[in-house]
Amino acid sequence: MLDIVIETRSHDLGGGFEVGRVLPFRQRRMVGPFVFFDRMGPHDLHAPVPEQFDVLPHPHIGLATVTYLFQGEMTHRDSLGVEQIIRPGALNWMMAGSGISHSERFDGMRPKGGVIDGIQAWVALPESHEEAAPTFNHYPPDALPIIDEAGWQGRLIAGSAYGQSSPSPVYSPLFYLHVQAGAGAQVPLPDTHPERAAYVASGRVEYQGQTYQPGQMLVFAPQATGAIRVVENTQMMLLGGEPVGPRHIWWNFVSSSKERIEQAKADWQAGRFQLPPHDKDKVIPLPSV
Results as ranks from 00 to 15, higher is better:
2 L>Y: 08
3 D>W: 10
9 R>I: 13
13 L>R: 06
21 R>Y: 05
26 R>S: 15
27 Q>K: 14
28 R>Q: 11
30 M>A: 03
41 G>T: 00
42 P>I: 08
46 H>M: 05
48 P>L: 13
50 P>H: 05
53 F>N: 07
57 P>K: 06
62 G>N: 11
63 L>K: 06
67 T>Y: 05
79 S>M: 06
81 G>D: 11
82 V>D: 03
87 R>V: 12
92 N>D: 05
92 N>M: 04
92 N>Y: 07
93 W>H: 13
95 M>K: 14
98 S>G: 14
99 G>H: 13
102 H>Q: 09
102 H>V: 03
105 R>A: 15
116 I>P: 04
132 A>M: 11
132 A>W: 01
137 N>L: 08
138 H>C: 07
140 P>G: 04
142 D>V: 11
151 G>H: 12
152 W>F: 01
155 R>E: 11
155 R>P: 03
158 A>E: 03
167 P>T: 01
169 P>N: 02
174 L>N: 04
185 A>R: 02
187 V>F: 00
192 T>G: 02
198 A>F: 08
200 V>C: 14
206 E>V: 02
206 E>F: 04
219 V>L: 05
225 T>A: 02
227 A>G: 03
229 R>F: 05
232 E>P: 09
233 N>C: 09
234 T>L: 09
239 L>I: 00
241 G>V: 01
244 V>W: 02
247 R>Y: 11
248 H>Y: 12
257 S>Q: 12
261 I>W: 06
263 Q>R: 10
265 K>C: 14
266 A>G: 09
269 Q>F: 11
269 Q>L: 11
270 A>K: 07
270 A>V: 05
276 P>R: 00
278 H>A: 07
280 K>N: 15
281 D>Q: 14
281 D>P: 03
